[in-house]
Amino acid sequence: MTQAMLEVKGIDVFYGASQILFGVDLTVEKGQTMALLGRNGAGKSTTFKAIAGIAPPRRGEINLAGVTVSGRKPYRIARAGIGYVPEDRQVFPEHSIEDNLIIGTKKGPNGEDYWTIERIYEVFPILAGMRTRMAGKLSGGEQQMLTIARTLMGNPEILLLDEPSEGLAPIIVQAIGSLIKQLREMGVTILLAEQNMHFCLGIATHATVVDKGQIVYRDTIEGLRANDAIKQRYLAI
């Protein structure tokens, strides 16, 4: 019996009086790279914020490796092993690259300390060349790399990446894509929110589609690739 790494069970999320998510279910197994696909405004970021505890669900629950984490404060959810990388690349602009990494440093929930600054620089050679550069001075792609690296420094059990390709030039998107693939091959469990299906087809192992706050489809990435009806209906631009 395998236990899911992340289990989102029937969550309803509201912003004030307006309901955004309706009974969202989502499961990610250890080692998977799960794409959460959906159009603009479908509810991807809201799902992530619910998992991270920033927009706590009003109903339903969220489990990490069998332990309920919903209802906890965001910092406790992070310590439990959820590594949330928000969509708008929130680097600390007036800190250097290295200081951003230092701020993200913590042990994993079971004392894991796999990620060190040196290991980060091996995986992110771009960052290694400019350790003392202010994060605010980096390009969008470099900032995206840095936010991912900074969250990895906290040794999460699962990495939540919210639209890492958004607003980046195609060549940078490709670099981010190979980075995510590399992390997947290292065994990192990833949940990846995207509008850009083609980006996900190349790197994800599984896919879940969200539309108007509800889950409408889930399958392997090959299943999605072959399903023109779903692609047409929910993901065509």
């Binding site: 404060k73 600390f92 701020i103």
Partner: peptide, 24 residues
């Protein structure tokens, strides 16, 4: 110090600092 770096970061973006596991 690391603590000072965290403090300065929390001055600018406390939500992100919290999401990195720090009790703001």
């Amino acid at each position: 110090t690391r603590f000072g770096k965290v403090v300065r970061a929390a001055a600018i973006n406390p939500t992100m600092v919290g999401a990195l596991g720090i009790n703001t």
